[in-house]
Design a protein around this nucleic acid. Structure first.
Lengths: 226, 226
DNA sequence: CCTTCCCTTGAGCGTTGCTCAACGCTTTGC
DNA sequence: GCAAAGCGTTGAGCAACGCTCAAGGGAAGG
């Protein structure tokens, strides 16, 4: 998606190294939406490698082949740009792990887990840099992180089927997600045991925690068919 | 500890507003160690309120009543300063939650949990800003965060008594700590139910997860005396 | 009293976030 | 077709901030 710009005009060289002398290509006039996408795509890649305060906007502009001024035209502030990139990453994650609507509740849970772990396997560094990094940063970032987690919590509760939703239940499900996040991220480092074992461990942890929290009926719904 | 400098000379005004005209106090020559402590104390307070890239070193120097140059004398780089502050916060956390060595294993576990929650209650914003913020930042920060979590993981495993330490066990204990961290932090926001219930939930979650992971003997050790 | 040590200063430099007025290509309306 | 409006784009320029460096000055030891 990063490089697939639907604009019909000439497109700048997005990937590949720079060629300072080679200015044969047109200056690349993109539509506002496409330019934003391109810039966010660059940010997604760069912020994966280094934290914000080491990110230099000049580099972003240079890589996009535009002037600094234009960058500020789209993102008035560095924080705006950062927030946009994190938001884009969040949207990506949410969309990549969307469960099929037609799947039964019990399977939806496993499916969300499966796709989430798959996402972490593919984009571990991105996840760490953009989400975990956001979790303790400025307020506008924390909100993005929290909202994204809310989506997963909500999906999980939906996957439980019809249960009474108490504050405690939400708390435990959220906590379970933290457990999943941490264990999966650590596991993805060197994959010390098979993927299936990990998924089983993570899936079984939910009913175990629900029972601990005094929600046996929800636990029963979360227990996968043996 | 923040303002208790053991230096016997005159001490700069650490807290309170600035008085640009009032230069009656001596320029405050501190020892290297005390100056570091003072600067780190200021950073601890400031970084709790805003993320690093919004932290201006001029302000730090101004609040300490020293020139910018001196700040760079002690911390050659802004990252160095940041790392030192985070490290100090980590040390504080570790020390504040140190279990009594003479307590039996079973009680040590509850004790660590109790003091940890107490710390989060007192310093929730500091914890969020400095640790969670560090968990996805630059490498040197991630390391501090990880090492601190290692301490808790180790303490917890020690609290389990003599059990076989497998990579999976470590993984689950670490994951449990993530659960604890998240649930406690969320709980501390508005304390929707009594503290004892929280502690019970967190404590019971450990054996539940250990059983899930196939470590019943460790789970038995983690089960608090009914 | 002199020497040494080191805490401390302040001027100054380069980078970087950000502003602003203007340019030119594209599209719209006549 | 032609002029006007719209919008993507530029580049000079400013202020803030991280960081350097040579030198000042008080305290401690002989």
């Amino acid at each position: 998606m990063l490089n697939k710009l639907s604009y019909n005009g000439p497109v700048t060289q997005l990937s590949g190294d720079e060629r300072p002398d080679d200015r044969t290509a047109a200056p690349a006039r993109l539509s506002g939406a496409d330019r934003r996408r391109q810039l966010i795509g660059i940010g997604l890649r760069m912020l994966t490698k280094r934290p914000i305060h080491e990110l230099v906007l000049d580099e972003v502009a240079a890589e996009a082949g535009i002037s600094r001024g234009l960058l500020f035209h789209y993102f008035p502030t560095k924080s705006d740009y950062y927030a946009a990139v994190v938001r884009a990453a969040a949207r990506r994650l949410v969309r990549a792990t969307e469960p099929r609507a037609d799947a039964p509740p019990g399977e939806q849970l496993v499916e969300v887990l499966d796709t989430f772990v798959a996402f972490l396997e593919r984009r571990r560094d991105l996840y760490l840099a953009l989400f975990r990094g956001a979790s303790g940063g400025a307020d506008y970032l924390v909100e993005i992180y929290d909202r994204t987690r809310d989506v997963f919590t909500e999906r999980t509760i939906t996957g439980l089927g019809p249960v009474e939703v108490t504050p405690e239940l939400t708390l435990v499900v959220r906590g379970w997600f933290s457990f999943v996040e941490d264990v999966a991220l650590t596991w993805a480092q060197d994959r010390p045991f098979p993927r299936e074992d990990l998924l089983r461990l993570l899936a079984d942890a939910l009913p175990a925690l629900l029972i601990t929290a005094g929600h046996p009926e929800a636990a029963r719904a979360a227990t996968r068919p043996a």
